[in-house]
């Protein structure tokens, strides 16, 4: 029982990070129907930015975390303008943008390798105080609290932004119907740029948390999370912020329960088996959003 509880805590912490990653990815899909795989490289860059800010410039975490997230957001906006925006007028723009994003992702990954001189780096020691507490027989570490706290706050802020503000309404309108939104006074390009920014920020936050928790930063880091985040997104049903969070948690929990009760070797088998199963039983995902309200 205790093992179950402990593995649940692990799974939640991990799942929140998947959810952050997946949410950024699905924001872009909702906005442009573009499969922006370079998102993974933007994620990796997020961790690298955090390393630059802390290890090289000696900034504390409270500055470096938002700083790295903002830089990742800006990088993603650049991705939009360089890789995707100019393909807008093509008939096959979704496919073209996907290929363009694949290429951009490869270049960004290579640039990290160069930037890091082909080695794995890590955030400096003592950046975040390491503690752990026993609560009802469960061990909870300060890192886990940080992950759940930061990711939780980010998710809530994003939810509020999407539902309560003009920006959120504009993003949702563009996601629903780009042409109509422009008739209603919404600049679709600036909204897309904003969406890429938000998406990059989410990736950046997730990356810094991962870098802190797993003490490892390298160029390919994001790729490992891409597939898991996609799974989270499909499980959650593409739809709401809520769906993606639940999808992320399901993947995180599946991952830690498999390690607990089977073996870590079966982890991917279980996660993707689950994905297949859900797609067969409930093709619309666990939390399908009515088609009249598709996306975001």
């Amino acid at each position: 029982m205790q093992l179950l509880g402990q593995q649940t805590i692990n799974g939640i912490a991990l799942g929140m990070v998947f959810a952050l990653f997946a949410m950024g990815f699905s924001l872009v899909i909702a906005n442009l129907s573009v499969f922006h795989v370079a998102h993974a490289a933007v994620f990796s860059w997020g961790a690298v930015f955090a390393w630059d800010l802390t290890d090289r410039f000696g900034l504390p975490l409270v500055v470096a975390l938002p700083g790295a997230a903002l830089l990742a957001g800006v990088l993603n906006v650049l991705c939009y303008f360089v890789l995707i925006r100019h393909l807008d007028s093509r008939r096959d723009k979704e496919l073209a943008a996907f290929i363009s994003s694949v290429g951009g992702g490869i270049i960004l990954t290579e640039l990290i390798s160069k930037h890091l001189n082909y080695v794995t780096v890590r955030l400096p020691d003592g950046l975040f105080p390491i503690r752990s507490w026993r609560v009802w027989g469960l061990q909870i570490s300060s890192i886990q609290l940080l992950i759940v706290g930061v990711a939780g706050v980010t998710v809530v802020l994003l939810g509020l932004l999407m539902t309560r503000t003009q920006i959120g309404r504009e993003v949702r309108a563009v996601a629903y119907d780009r042409e109509l939104a422009s008739m209603l006074g919404v600049g679709a390009t600036s909204v897309s740029a904003l969406v890429f920014f938000l998406s990059g920020v989410l990736a950046g936050v997730a990356a810094v948390l991962i870098a802190l928790a797993f003490s490892q930063i390298d160029s390919r880091q994001g790729n490992a999370y891409l597939v898991l985040a996609l799974t989270a997104m499909v499980l959650g049903g593409f739809g709401s912020v809520k769906g993606v969070v639940v999808g992320g948690l399901v993947v995180g929990l599946a991952s830690s329960y498999t390690t607990a009760y089977l073996s870590s070797g079966y982890r991917n088998v279980v996660i993707f088996g689950l994905l297949m199963l859900v797609l067969v039983v409930r093709p619309q995902g666990l939390f399908a959003v009515p088609s009249s309200e598709i996306r975001v």
Binding site: L3, Q6, Q7, N10, G11, A13, L14, Q144, I210, A213, F214, Q216, Q221, A224, S255, S256, T259, A260, S264
Partner: peptide, 8 residues
């Protein structure tokens, strides 16, 4: 990279 489950 994540060993929390294994360590548990």
């Amino acid at each position: 990279t994540d060993f929390s489950s294994v360590l548990t």
